[in-house]
Nucleic acid binder design. Sequence first.
DNA 1: AACTCACGCAACCGCGTTCCG
DNA 2: TCGGAACGCGGTTGCGTGAGT
Length: 284
Amino acid sequence: MGRSPCCSKEGLNKGAWTALEDKILTEYINTHGEGKWRHLPKRAGLKRCGKSCRLRWLNYLRPGIKRGNITSDEEELIIRLHNLLGNRWSLIAGRLPGRTDNEIKNYWNTNIGRKLQNGGARSTLNTVQQDGNLKNQEWHHYPNHPPDHKGSCLFQTKATRWTKVTISKDITLQNEIKSNVGVNKIVSPSSERKNDPVLDFMADLEMDGDFFSELLKMDLPESSCHQEKKTVEDNGNPNTVDKGYLSPKSSSDTTHFPWGDSLYDTNFDFLPVTTFMESGFDWF
DNA sequence: AACTCACGCAACCGCGTTCCG
DNA sequence: TCGGAACGCGGTTGCGTGAGT
């Protein structure tokens, strides 16, 4: 059975919003709150699709929206988050207060993406790395990087969600992952966090359960997947973990990750994220 | 002044996911 | 457990505008 359209398209306004429509929408949401987008246009007296109303509110009318140019700091953050998350614009936007996913997506497509294609981002990233320790990683996960670069890999532009994560047997053994290991352990503020710089680092990044869960669902370089993923059809096998909860910290001294060790260098000291931002350290 | 082209951004569209009865 | 409704996300489109000729 096909899905019915979200709203009748007959007699609905399309295109740019007028000031009057903005006013009506803003006043309605201020009075009744967000949600129920499907019914909002009719109740508010707007000749708009509910989705259109939602988009207009989230991307333009919502309080706290930061208009204007993306700063260089924000651009660097976007690059790093994109390196980590791929085209997960809503997640990236969530780390940039006042910025919307649409804005960041547009900015990426018109500015950063083009820079990267033309090699223009090199200067930005080099600037960042002047004081950093993680050399030779600037083009990791980016397309069109120098062909002789170590760590070359394809970059998947089409974002797909992972609802199931298959962990390699080797990794499972090394990390002693049990099926019931969850993120609560990771973000626990208790004594387990003490003296664990990894957990402090993640906490500073606000890597809560949702973030880490999203991280596990993120796009991984295809090469890494092929390299590490072992298909296990056996449902009872602990190598298959629904929703992908696993500890980032090995009980041993060496930690390996499906996406490669380069993204997670255990040899450098973890510092608060503010320190990274201030020093320009390349923390991915 | 008129035209063309490129660019940036707001909005649209389709589809996957989540919610709920 | 299932199916439909609602929501949310990411890719794409199209319009307005400014620069170049």
